[in-house]
Computed example of a mutant assay.
Amino acid sequence: MTAAEVAVLSALAPDHTLTTTEIQQASALTSWRTRNAVAQLNSRGLITPTRPPGRWRITPRGRTALAVKAPRFR
Rank of each mutant, 00 (worst) to 15 (best):
A3F: 05
A3S: 13
A3T: 07
A3K: 07
A4V: 04
E5G: 14
E5N: 09
V6M: 08
A7L: 03
A7H: 04
S10V: 02
S10D: 13
S10F: 01
A11M: 05
L12T: 06
L12P: 14
A13I: 04
P14H: 04
H16S: 12
L18S: 06
L18D: 07
T20A: 15
Q24C: 05
Q24I: 07
Q25A: 11
W32R: 06
R33F: 10
T34W: 02
R35I: 00
R35K: 14
N36D: 11
A37Y: 02
V38A: 01
A39D: 13
A39F: 09
Q40R: 15
S43C: 00
S43H: 13
S43E: 11
R44Q: 15
G45S: 03
G45H: 03
L46A: 06
L46W: 02
I47T: 02
I47V: 11
T48F: 03
T48R: 14
P49F: 01
T50A: 12
T50H: 01
R51L: 11
R51M: 08
P52G: 09
P52D: 07
P52K: 07
P53R: 11
R55A: 07
W56M: 10
R57K: 14
I58A: 09
T59P: 01
R61N: 09
G62E: 03
G62N: 07
R63I: 03
T64L: 12
A65H: 02
A67R: 10
V68Y: 03
V68D: 13
K69R: 07
A70W: 01
A70I: 05
P71D: 06
R72Y: 08
R72G: 13
R74W: 02
